[in-house]
């Protein structure tokens, strides 16, 4: 790691104020991606604003027909939360598939979506469920929030404070892990709310998480895995690497989508 100054934020205001004073600062949420990146000297923020002690950023609440998960809520908390399990069991399952048990004790939903790793799991859930990303400044639809590989619509002096998930009738996430890193090589989230079906894909897109609209159309007509037979995705829009070619990922998206629909 390169040297940095550590700021332990006491509140959201304090965190934003510190960021304002140090434009080149970065927020430290659970640190499960940022710290390894810094250790390898691939990131060099001169200031780190540690959100670990900001109590107002933790918690899970059902507010009517939406589930509110505050930004510093850990994957472990989401995975084991009775509120999440009864509101949207598939979301708790998804959280339980992130990283490993020790990582889930540190990693947070806010950190995950603000980083928008193209192989992260939460962005797929946010897109499929039509989540709203709440910041200290505004409310953003997930689709407007995720803007590409490792990039989001977050502006200077902006911090994610919570994520709001509307309730879906059905939701399932199917993940095919990269055998080495255990990130998603392909992850497909399928959500059905009334007549609307959304399918979001992570791990595969060359521009990060995306919605597979062709599959959505088929599934809106008939929410059955057979509706996806013969449907394929253009490998040219996907990312290929030593673990899986674009063609293989395209194929896996179909398989995972069908399995998600069958299990939803």
């Amino acid at each position: 790691m390169y040297a940095f100054t550590h700021h332990l934020a006491s509140s959201v205001d304090d965190a934003v104020k510190t960021l304002g004073a140090n434009g080149d600062a970065k927020f430290l949420a659970g640190g499960q991606t940022l710290l390894p990146t810094m250790k390898q000297r691939l990131a060099a923020p001169p200031h780190l604003i540690d959100l670990g002690k900001v109590k107002e950023l933790r918690g899970i609440e059902v507010q009517g027909d939406k589930l509110v998960i505050k930004a510093m809520t850990r994957h472990y908390d989401v995975a084991t939360s009775d509120a999440v399990k009864s509101f949207q069991p598939g979301l708790a399952e998804l959280a339980g598939l992130i990283g490993d048990p020790a990582v889930r004790h540190r990693g947070t939903i806010g950190g995950s979506i603000a980083n928008n790793d193209p192989a992260a799991d939460y962005p797929a859930a946010c897109l499929a469920l039509g989540a709203t990303i709440v910041t200290n400044k505004r409310r953003l639809e997930a689709e407007k929030f995720f803007t590409g590989l490792f990039s989001t619509a977050l502006e200077d002096n902006e911090i994610v404070t919570s994520v709001e998930f509307p309730k879906a009738d059905k939701f399932k996430y199917m993940k095919f892990r990269n055998p080495a890193s255990r990130y998603a090589m392909v992850g497909v989230a399928v959500a059905k709310k009334g007549g609307e079906v959304r399918v979001a894909v992570t791990g595969a897109g060359s521009d990060g998480v995306f919605r597979w609209t062709a599959a959505e159309e088929k599934l809106t007509q008939n929410f059955d895995k057979r509706a996806l037979e013969g449907l394929s995705i253009d490998p040219g829009t996907l990312n290929g690497d030593i673990h899986g070619s674009r063609e293989y990922r395209a194929h896996l998206i179909g398989v995972m989508a069908k399995r998600a629909v069958a299990a939803a």
Partner: peptide, 24 residues
């Protein structure tokens, strides 16, 4: 953050001590 040789408990929960700042 993958091998787990550094796992300790913080407040009763397993974490990777190589991916946690001491100041945190």
């Amino acid at each position: 953050s993958q091998c787990g040789a550094c796992v300790v408990h913080i407040d009763g929960e397993a974490v990777k001590a190589c991916t946690t700042l001491a100041l945190s």
